[in-house]
């Protein structure tokens, strides 16, 4: 199993009281799997994604990525691992307004170590997500669907083994949402593991597995097998 979260919890202090964002959650994602997490706003989905992406340390529990417990790694080592192996697409627009589209896509190459600057060409990735013609544009000139495509291209730049996307189709119309989701299916078909948050029932149906989150608690839900043959739990 590429990613295993074991009984992770995350608590915050809010106005002096302890608030539990994620409580005793466990999940697994294998290579080539497309796994979705659903749940109401504020249920803890994004926090869970942040924990499994190595962006937030859990208060309790462990996250095992490719056999290594990333909750025990120091920031520099964790970033070295996360940069090339875990692609993360944040919720909402996340392109830097001061950079062109092509520079936004290339950005991850310059945030890690020099040795890690190998990867698929940015222009080729933009072509792959259908945004090749936007390379010289700036984010302010792009539509919501185009912004999302560029974000996906950026997350794929270093050919990650795990791609995490937080509501990647949240503000898109059904056609754009379906097209973007199609991209994720293609990526999963090529072998990458995908973990995403979505509210769209039509898209949830196309996932290999589904988790529901409510009040910080995660529950495995109905499971189906994609034609490509994902792991069945």
């Amino acid at each position: 199993m590429l990613l295993e979260a074991e009984r992770v919890s995350k608590t915050y202090k809010r106005d002096g009281a302890v608030f539990s964002a994620v409580s005793d959650a466990s999940l697994r994602v294998g290579d080539g799997e497309l796994v979705c997490v659903t749940g109401r706003s504020g249920s803890g989905k994004s926090t869970l994604l942040g924990i499994v992406a190595g962006l937030l340390p859990p208060t309790e529990g462990h996250v095992i990525f490719d056999g290594a417990d990333i909750t025990k790694l120091r920031d520099s080592r964790l970033s070295r691992l996360r940069g090339p192996q875990i692609g993360y697409i944040p919720q909402g627009h996340s392109l830097l307004a001061s950079l062109s589209v092509i520079d936004n896509v290339r950005l991850p190459l310059y945030l890690g170590s020099r040795a890690a600057r190998a990867g698929t060409g940015a222009a080729a990735l933009l072509d792959k997500v259908g945004a090749g013609h936007l390379a010289a544009q700036y984010p302010a000139q792009l539509s919501g669907g185009e912004l999302r495509r560029v974000s996906i291209a950026r997350a794929l730049l270093r050919e990650p083994r795990l791609l995490i996307a937080d509501e990647p189709t949240g503000d898109l119309d059904p056609d754009n949402a379906a097209a973007i989701f199609g991209l994720f299916e293609d990526i999963a078909r090529e072998g990458a593991a995908i973990l995403l948050v979505t509210h769209d029932p039509a898209l949830v149906e196309r996932c290999d597995r589904r988790y529901d989150m409510s009040g910080g608690e995660l529950r495995a839900s109905d499971v189906r097998s994609r034609q490509s043959g994902g792991v069945i739990c």
Binding site: D75, S79, P84, S94
Partner: peptide, 16 residues
Amino acid sequence: MREFGVYRALGATRAR
């Protein structure tokens, strides 16, 4: 802060 959060999400260390 969100802009820097993006850097972080893309693999930047705290030091970077």
